[in-house]
């Protein structure tokens, strides 16, 4: 597998993961709203809901890191005048 192919597979993977993550995030939120509406105050339920939500956030963080890495390796290198760059010219 070349570097390019590897990057492309990573990109596909991160893209494919975004749909289920999007769906999990929204459906968890719906669950929370419905529980509140039903006035269910069993703390254990909310504890486990929090755990699922946190775990899904962790996967999200990983996917975001992936995406950033892919974008960075996509960048083109060129020489710049550092002084001009810093002065915003």
């Amino acid at each position: 597998m070349t570097d390019k192919e590897l990057l492309e597979s990573l990109e596909l993977l991160s893209h494919k993961l975004k749909n289920p993550l999007h769906s999990v995030g929204i459906n968890l939120d719906v669950l929370r709203v419905k529980l509140k509406k039903e006035k269910i105050s069993d703390k254990a339920i909310y504890k486990h809901l929090d755990i699922v939500e946190n775990e899904s956030h962790r996967i999200q963080e990983i996917v975001i890191k992936f995406s950033k890495y892919i974008k960075m390796s996509d960048a083109k290198k060129k020489m710049v005048n550092l002084r001009k760059l810093l002065e915003g010219k």
């Binding site: 929204i26 459906n27 939120d29 719906v30 709203v33």
Partner: peptide, 16 residues
């Protein structure tokens, strides 16, 4: 085209 997303969004927005 993803049913889980549709179901989630629908419930969320109906609640609103």
């Amino acid at each position: 085209d993803e049913i889980p997303i549709i179901e989630g969004l629908k419930a969320l927005l109906e609640e609103e």
